[in-house]
Amino acid sequence: MSPQPISTRDIVYIALFAALTAALALFPPITLPLIGVPITAQSMGPMLAGAILGARRGALSILLVLALVAIGLPILSGGRGGLGVFAGPTVGFLLGWVATAYVVGLLHELGWNKLTLFSSFAHAMIGGIIVLYAIGIPVLAVQASLSIKAATMACLAFIPGDLVKAALTAVIAVAIKRAHPIIGTRRGQTA
């Protein structure tokens, strides 16, 4: 089964969610002193992109964000951008955003017909917390010269905020499903 070509509508959605993810950087970050990783609203972007656009388009929107960051646009929280951010302690989380968007999107596609507030919240938690942390924490441990345990303990401060982001994502995703569904089931029913 060959992948479907990207339509003009897909490009618009991908660009829109890349812009939304960049706009979430406008909320001021709170940097944790021990690890130098900021608490930001921006990590909600990948959750929203996946939940609303689906796996493929959601991941592509986050890849676009990372490409724009790589060429130097200061669109990360705190006005950061450029290749230097890919050498810092947040690189695992930044790269994990792509997996987050994909997994959240895939889970939403698989459960689209029976999507509820609770299931959407669970999907956002799995992709936006479990998958993201599984990628981000080991890279953080290496980059910040911490043990996995120390890096994990340091990241516990992010969990309450990430739960709020997952809940907001669920509310928005369910509302969009009812009003103007953009994704469909995994069996190819896409808008």
Rank of each mutant, 00 (worst) to 15 (best):
M1A: 15
S2F: 11
P3T: 13
P3V: 14
Q4F: 13
T8Q: 09
T8K: 09
R9G: 01
D10Q: 00
I11V: 13
A15G: 08
L16Q: 06
A19R: 10
A19Y: 06
L20S: 08
L26M: 13
F27Y: 15
P28D: 13
P29M: 05
P29L: 05
I30F: 12
L32I: 14
P33R: 09
I35C: 05
T40P: 04
S43L: 04
A49M: 07
G50E: 01
I52F: 12
L53E: 05
L53C: 10
L53Y: 05
G54Y: 13
R56I: 07
A59Q: 01
S61K: 00
S61I: 00
I62K: 01
L63F: 12
L63S: 11
L68V: 02
I71W: 12
G72F: 11
I75T: 06
I75P: 11
L76V: 08
G81Q: 07
G82E: 08
F86M: 04
P89Q: 12
V91T: 14
V91P: 04
F93K: 08
F93M: 09
W97L: 04
W97P: 01
V98P: 08
V98G: 07
A101M: 08
A101Y: 05
Y102K: 05
G105H: 00
L106V: 05
L106M: 11
L107Q: 00
L107I: 03
H108C: 10
N113L: 14
K114N: 07
L117W: 12
L117K: 09
F118E: 09
S119E: 10
S119Q: 12
F121Y: 05
A122H: 07
A122S: 14
A122D: 10
A124N: 04
A124Y: 01
M125Y: 02
G127S: 00
G128R: 04
I129C: 02
L132P: 03
Y133Q: 09
A134P: 07
A144C: 10
S145C: 10
S147C: 02
S147E: 10
K149G: 13
A150L: 06
A150E: 15
A151F: 01
A154V: 04
L156G: 12
A157V: 11
A157T: 07
A157H: 07
P160E: 13
P160H: 13
K165H: 01
A166T: 00
A167W: 00
A167M: 08
L168E: 13
A170E: 02
V171E: 14
I172P: 05
A173L: 00
A175M: 15
A175N: 15
R178V: 07
A179N: 15
H180V: 14
P181R: 12
I182Q: 11
R186I: 09
R186V: 10
R187K: 15
G188K: 07
Q189I: 08
T190Q: 12
T190F: 07
A191M: 15
A191I: 14
